Simulated assay, not measured.
Amino acid sequence: MKTSSLCKVLNTERIAEDIYKISVTRPVEWKEIKAGQFFHIKCSEEGKSYLRRPISICEVEPDQLRFIVRKSGKGTEALCNRKVGDDLDIIGPLGNGFTPTGERILLVGGGIGTAPLVELCKTIKSKDVTVLLGFRTEPYLVETFKKYCSTVEVATEDGSFGVKGYVTALLEDAMENSPEMIYACGPEIMLKQIQQFGKEKGIPTQLAMEERMACGVGACLVCSCKVKAGDDWDYVRTCKEGPVFWGDEVIFDENN
């Protein structure tokens, strides 16, 4: 069972509308942290009853960690409002991360799902990495990705930056590089399209699932994900067996 650690807030920076980058100190006991893993963060100070929020790791440094947080409710608002020097009660690292493999790599991120792909970019040994990023309007982390990969393409739904449309519209052009592996994180509808695209092209995929979580340690079963089990199917815990799954494992709701 993971125990909590107190981390000092080093910096909080607004990087887009309702999107914040939060840097915290890294405790010595957190020796190995994999891209795709997450941390369960207590958002408020003592006396407030907000549940912890599962936040994927964005970047790992020897002495600090960086998270990207979308301010979307009272809990994440309290987290984004924390000040430099505040203590954050954090449990982690939790879950299973990405498995880096292959030489020609394609990363696809949608919205806040772009965040865990930054550390993956840093982890992948190959220099032949193409990143496709999708946002509704204002993009973020684009310049950060450019530090670690060979090609970055951006799509915005309103056409304010890059190509107008969804990030999946960039997939066909990315095939010119004949990728050997696709990694993706973002909304379920995007992940379903990536899964289908990988099947059609014969390219293996790894998908970081975004599910609602309560306990973060596999006890509450709120974050169940439907996966193949031999010739049948079963439910597994996204926080424990995931959040990263191989694409051919996941069974998406046919209504999405």
Rank of each mutant, 00 (worst) to 15 (best):
K228F: 02
D89I: 08
L117E: 02
P243R: 03
G110L: 06
T130G: 03
S178M: 09
R212V: 08
G165F: 03
S150G: 01
T123F: 14
M190N: 01
P27D: 04
T3G: 09
E46N: 05
G218M: 06
E46W: 01
Q196T: 12
L65G: 11
E157A: 14
G165A: 05
C58S: 14
L170N: 02
T144G: 08
K74L: 15
G162P: 03
R237D: 05
D234V: 14
V227F: 02
F245A: 02
E138A: 15
T99C: 14
E59R: 14
K122Q: 13
A155I: 03
D232W: 07
T25D: 12
S49M: 08
Y50K: 03
P100R: 10
K21T: 11
I251P: 01
A35G: 10
I189P: 13
E254L: 10
G110I: 11
I91N: 10
C80I: 08
V69W: 07
Q196G: 05
E153S: 14
D87Y: 07
I90V: 15
G165Q: 06
D234N: 05
S23G: 10
C149N: 00
E241Y: 06
M209V: 15
M1D: 08
E119S: 15
D231C: 07
G36E: 03
V84W: 01
L6W: 12
E119C: 08
A35D: 06
Q64W: 14
C239T: 11
A155L: 09
V250Y: 00
T156P: 07
L10I: 09
C223H: 10
K71D: 09
Q195Y: 06
V60P: 04
G230L: 07
G162S: 00
F161C: 03
V236A: 08
V84D: 11
M181G: 07
D248F: 00
K83E: 15
T144P: 05
P204L: 11
E200A: 05
G109M: 08
T99M: 13
C43S: 04
M213L: 12
Q195D: 01
R26Q: 08
L107R: 05
V163R: 15
S23A: 15
Q37M: 02
S72R: 04
I105R: 06
E172D: 15
A174C: 14
G198S: 06
L170Y: 03
T151D: 13
I203R: 13
G85P: 07
T168L: 02
V129L: 03
Y140D: 11
G47A: 03
Q206R: 07
Y50L: 05
E254K: 10
E254F: 04
D128E: 13
E180T: 13
K2W: 00
C43D: 02
A155M: 12
T101Y: 07
G97E: 05
G216W: 04
G113T: 12
T144F: 01
E200P: 02
D232T: 15
F252S: 01
G73R: 09
S4L: 06
G230N: 12
A78V: 09
S44G: 13
I33N: 03
L170D: 01
L94V: 12
Q196H: 14
E32R: 13
S126M: 11
E210H: 10
T205H: 13
M213R: 13
E143T: 15
A229S: 12
